[in-house]
Design a protein around this nucleic acid. Sequence first.
DNA 1: TATTAAACGAGACGGTACGTCGGGTCTTCGG
DNA 2: CCGAAGACCCGACGTACCGTCTCGTTTAATA
Lengths: 194, 194, 194, 194
Amino acid sequence: MPGPPNAVRRSERARSAILTATTELIHELPYAKLSIEAIAARAGVGKQTIYRWWPSKGAVVFDAMLEQDSGPDGPGLPDTGDIRADLRLLLRGSIAALTEPGVEGFLRAMYVEIQQDSDLGELYRERLLRPQRTAITRRLEAGIQAGQLRPDLDLELTLDLLVGPIQYRWSLGVGGLDDAYADALLEAVMATAM
Amino acid sequence: MPGPPNAVRRSERARSAILTATTELIHELPYAKLSIEAIAARAGVGKQTIYRWWPSKGAVVFDAMLEQDSGPDGPGLPDTGDIRADLRLLLRGSIAALTEPGVEGFLRAMYVEIQQDSDLGELYRERLLRPQRTAITRRLEAGIQAGQLRPDLDLELTLDLLVGPIQYRWSLGVGGLDDAYADALLEAVMATAM
Amino acid sequence: MPGPPNAVRRSERARSAILTATTELIHELPYAKLSIEAIAARAGVGKQTIYRWWPSKGAVVFDAMLEQDSGPDGPGLPDTGDIRADLRLLLRGSIAALTEPGVEGFLRAMYVEIQQDSDLGELYRERLLRPQRTAITRRLEAGIQAGQLRPDLDLELTLDLLVGPIQYRWSLGVGGLDDAYADALLEAVMATAM
Amino acid sequence: MPGPPNAVRRSERARSAILTATTELIHELPYAKLSIEAIAARAGVGKQTIYRWWPSKGAVVFDAMLEQDSGPDGPGLPDTGDIRADLRLLLRGSIAALTEPGVEGFLRAMYVEIQQDSDLGELYRERLLRPQRTAITRRLEAGIQAGQLRPDLDLELTLDLLVGPIQYRWSLGVGGLDDAYADALLEAVMATAM
DNA sequence: TATTAAACGAGACGGTACGTCGGGTCTTCGG
DNA sequence: CCGAAGACCCGACGTACCGTCTCGTTTAATA
């Protein structure tokens, strides 16, 4: 019986070669053409070495994405004291990230996998979505402290109002995602939040 | 060179058997396990008959979904004269549809395909998304006429504020999608729209 | 129930187009690539028109071959009065025919089909092989009459000795089939036959 | 690019299962119905495992035939000192082999493939035909040494005279292949050879 | 000459098998 | 024991043809 692999003996060389190969292939191929076999070949690694450490292709892609950065916006969010300016940066930055080729491929891939693999969905929420949401929530709370937002503001809902429309347009390919959209969205949400 | 098939001679029996089989299998299997081969076998049809009329599995699934109904909310939207009540129905109904087993499988499948197939994405937008958005826009315009909404309202943005957060939560599995969420979302948007 | 087709109403145009197309394709393609579909397309004919009049691809090919000539040597055989000269012509002519591109493709095809389809084998024997053998037998009998061959000669066996080695070498690709071989073979057989 | 497979790591279990399955199916089915798919299924093997090691169905069948025995007559030939007796055994044995169900299916299949695949034809000649012909030639040479045959005998031609008529009758289904035919043939050839 | 039943061209259909790709497992060898 | 290599069993892909079955449309015998 194999039992779990011994993480101590894990080859760092293999691990990073796999993630690098995955990143390259995500940028070169449509996601449907990305195969474990291709990753292994590109990384100069046996397939078993991938299967030993990751449960699915989506998990490899997820790790490769994490290796690149810590998500579409990064976990941090500036606090200049001006809530409107900071959120503008957030929304414009989100749109820019979703459009950037280095990121879009990864995110589309994650969208695909999340619809089909609830374990991976949970992982995505814990490792990427929750930190991002927490960071924004923190900034909104600071805005309340600073008297720039209503004290009784529903933070979760405000967050959804800021992020949801952008994700919705992006994921369905609706288009019209530019700075002007970000600004208009921000003004609409600020109108309810002050 | 084969050229395009002659649609006049198409077998209605085969067409509807294929869509019915697809619908059944979408409900029985995880989408990743749905194969053209399985659809053909269940429908009692040769694979070629599927490939003759649809360019991809996603296109078959899309047609099967259309055959079931005309989308998550249907193209129509009530107009009782009370914009708040009508939109409440819309949002609650959207959430209910996204959760209903008969619909969720189809929509997850479409989300998967849209990320990977831009032709299918365009089809989805034209045949499902645009009608839905047009219907809501019409209702908002009527609300403006009735003096229940601000005349200078940005309709597209308002639409995104209503629909985006729900789609966003659903597609990423964030949870918390219930009538209370729908109502809170509606109140927030109405606050900006009146 | 369809019943047998009415041969009177048969389209001569279709019949000859099919046989011509078959002959062309036999010359252009390896036999394994020759399909009924290709024949029908080349002939500008519906597949059903082929299936209506021939039971199998082999039968079409057989008819196409008959249409070209009446076999590798033709049913006739000269009788100059000199049995050795006449048989030399026969053997040299057989080898020439088996090597001629216009004939070889057909004969290889028939060899293939005869191994697998006993009905077609019977047809081949009756329509091609038997006449050929009868013609040679007649000539041998004339040779006996003329006192050039032993009166107690086993005609069937002599025939096999003349024809068998050539067919054997040709069908197995042994090579060495030329006029010199024909002549040597003839001398050997004549030695037993006089 | 895959490159050639590594023969060292080849599974003997799979190899012999494939050849056994092929032998069984050759005996059960007409050759036209024998598919790679059926062989793989019967052998409990993936199709790729067949395609990895053999270039064509004919090549598999050929190897399966070799696995059974070393050809229609076997490479050896007795030398009792009596050339006539030994050749009688050869011819009668050839006819028996060609008629034996366990062999006939294989040989018909090889005849079919050889007409269409020159690589396989070459293989057949090298591995089966040449050894058989060499063995007979050796025996004839011994007969010359023993003074039972003419010293100036054309060995290749004599060989063709012995074997050709039988192969010819068999391959075209002429019939009449029995011990009497073998004996008559032998006497005719011996008449030229002594 | 008009009628009419068939053969015809076209090609969609339910199937079988093709040869290929990739998934996930297993085995062998080297470090 | 991990890792590389890659063979293995398997399921599915998308394609080619099979032989059957409609469809209109000629077309030729007969009424």
